[in-house]
Design a protein around this nucleic acid. Structure first.
Length: 282
DNA sequence: CACCATGTTCCTTG
DNA sequence: CCAAGGAACATGGT
């Protein structure tokens, strides 16, 4: 599920469904999924709260809560690598890897997370280290250049630094660089002003396009087949948008659609990078 | 069995 | 102290 566009799509689905609902009951199936909260503190803080709004910041879901005074009023969700969130019927069985489930006045908000790298927590400290939202006017080529000025890392792994800009992940980092025709191995501080402008622009275009593509994917109401209209599944069908819309990610050995070069896979900072050595130069 | 996976954080190294 | 690299986290797919 999880880069900025996928989280954005999920938030757009969840907000109208959850807005105004009250959390009647809290079950933490995996204690580590609410870290650094304890199960006790999390349950006490969330039970009885009313969800006022669901928003996004970077790859985080923000649930604004109305709670008793002095209680934390912001619940934070992060999908990690494999997290999903959806509302299902109270009668439906929980998935094998349910991490947290919140029973509402109607339906259950399920946080499912196969690898348990994700979070649902009242601790919001991770938000303070985040850089600008790439789709806001707080982000542009100049801001990017400033952030890269003293950086000796190659540009691609640097794009994953959430303190530089917040929300780009491994897929869209490779994609943005391809669109900007910049080598992922280029030293960050060596990007020219023009390149920074172009890269900032391409980051925005790639993210916007992905959100647009995700918006056209129909919701998956399949759930468990009880079909009472409650089901909002986080898209199961992102593979569709992958194959259709990605230019280099996971396309090692395929020809570049722009120059007929051969797309390569390399490893940087322990993660895969995909690029076209022909049209992405130093 | 080996290697790969949309992310973050911690530990080590330089 | 800082930046960068690597591993850990946990499970499943190929």
């Amino acid at each position: 599920m999880p880069e900025l566009p996928e989280v954005e799509i999920l938030v757009r689905h969840l907000d109208p469904v959850l807005r105004g609902r009250t959390i009647r009951n809290v079950t933490v199936h995996r204690a580590k999924s609410v870290r650094p909260d304890t199960v006790r503190r999390f349950a006490a803080g969330v039970a009885g709260a009313k969800i006022l709004q669901v928003r996004r910041r970077a790859k985080y879901l923000l649930f604004d809560l109305e709670t008793r005074s002095n209680a934390p009023d912001l619940l934070l969700g992060h999908l990690g690598m494999t997290g999903r969130m959806y509302v299902q019927s109270t009668r439906a069985a929980l998935p094998k890897h349910a991490a947290v489930s919140l029973r509402l006045n109607r339906g259950v908000l399920v946080f499912e997370d196969t690898r348990y790298f994700g979070r649902m927590t009242l601790d919001t400290s991770s938000l303070v280290k985040l850089g600008p939202e790439p789709l806001s006017d707080q982000f542009n080529g100049h801001v990017l250049q400033e952030g890269l000025r003293k950086c000796s890392q190659p540009i691609k792994p640097k794009l994953l630094d959430q303190g530089l800009l917040a929300g780009v992940g491994n897929i869209y980092a490779s994609e943005a660089l391809w669109h900007a025709r910049i080598s992922p191995r280029k030293l960050s501080r060596r990007l020219s002003g023009t390149q920074c402008d172009r890269l900032a622009e391409c980051v925005q275009v790639v993210l916007r396009k992905a959100i647009e593509a995700g918006s056209t994917i129909p919701l998956d109401f399949s759930g468990d087949g009880t079909g009472d209209g409650l089901f909002y599944y986080g898209s199961t069908s992102e593979t569709v948008s992958h194959e259709e819309n990605l230019s280099v990610y996971d396309r090692e050995g395929e020809p570049c659609s722009r120059c007929k070069g051969m797309i390569r896979r390399i490893v940087q900072a322990n993660r895969s990078t995909f690029y076209c050595p022909q049209c992405q130069r130093g």
